[in-house]
Computed example of a mutant assay.
Amino acid sequence: MILQALLTEFEYEVASTRKLLEAVPEKDILYKPSPVSWTMGELAQHIATIYYWYVGTLTKTVYDMAADSLERGSPDDIKATLALFEKNVALARTALQGLKEENLTEDWTMKVGERVVLGPMPRGIVARSFLFNHIYHHRGEMIVYLRATGNKVPGMYGPVYEDSAGSK
């Protein structure tokens, strides 16, 4: 029951994330709102990378980030980031579809080398917080970046402000 809900949400939200990443213009790829912020390109690439983490999170009981590597390409190339996104979504989908309901209650831990950075905690909680909610958080940041640079934000949950009569 919970797993089916996660799969349904995953597919719906992948479409929304795709729309958002497709809205990132090359002309603003180097924009960053503050000295400590990522550029728009780095933020887009991070969003695409989170989908890669589904594999380690959903197929391993201990995910060592230091032992894993992902070729990302340049964050200044939005087309490369979109390709990375599509590749990682396919991997994430396969990992999600390979789960069984009982896998959601298994303990899971994230390490970087010998240092434990998350967990142990039930895999279902990790999926919700570290994967799903993490993406939503960064999508919200991307919306701010797009608006700050005068770009149109795509409607992900219906019309956006710019589409409404109130903005005319």
Rank of each mutant, 00 (worst) to 15 (best):
E106I: 13
I29V: 04
V116D: 00
S34T: 12
L6E: 12
S164G: 01
D107H: 11
V153Q: 10
Y145F: 10
A15G: 09
V116R: 02
G73C: 00
L104Y: 10
I135S: 06
L96P: 08
R139M: 08
L146W: 06
L104T: 12
G56L: 10
N103D: 15
I125F: 13
I125V: 10
F132V: 10
Y136G: 07
E141Y: 04
E9T: 13
P159R: 12
L84M: 12
S69L: 02
M65Y: 08
K111D: 09
L104H: 12
T17W: 00
P35G: 06
E71M: 02
G73E: 01
W38F: 15
T39I: 06
T8E: 13
E114L: 07
S164C: 06
K32N: 05
G41K: 05
E13A: 03
G155M: 12
A80M: 01
R18P: 01
A5G: 10
R115C: 08
N151C: 14
V144M: 01
L99W: 03
L118N: 10
F130H: 08
L70P: 04
L58H: 04
L58Q: 04
Y54M: 02
A148V: 03
A90S: 11
V14P: 00
A127N: 14
K60D: 04
Y145H: 09
L20V: 13
E114N: 13
A83T: 06
G113Q: 14
D77R: 04
L43P: 05
L43E: 07
A95N: 08
N151M: 07
E102P: 02
M65S: 08
Y136S: 12
A66V: 05
I2W: 13
I47C: 04
L84S: 03
V126F: 11
M142S: 00
G56S: 02
H46V: 12
T94F: 05
N133Q: 14
R93N: 12
T49W: 10
D28Q: 15
G124K: 14
H137M: 04
T81G: 01
G158Y: 04
K111S: 11
G41L: 03
M156Y: 02
D77E: 06
A95D: 05
G113P: 10
L3G: 05
L131I: 10
L58K: 06
A95T: 09
G158A: 03
D28G: 06
L70A: 04
P33K: 11
M110G: 11
S16M: 09
V55Q: 12
I143M: 09
E71C: 00
A44R: 11
L84P: 02
I29F: 05
Y51K: 07
G41R: 05
S34E: 08
G56E: 11
A127L: 15
K111L: 11
R93G: 02
V62W: 02
G73F: 08
D28I: 12
M121E: 13
D163W: 08
I50F: 06
P33T: 06
P75D: 01
L30M: 11
A23M: 00
K60A: 12
S34Y: 07
Y52T: 09
L118C: 11
Y63N: 12
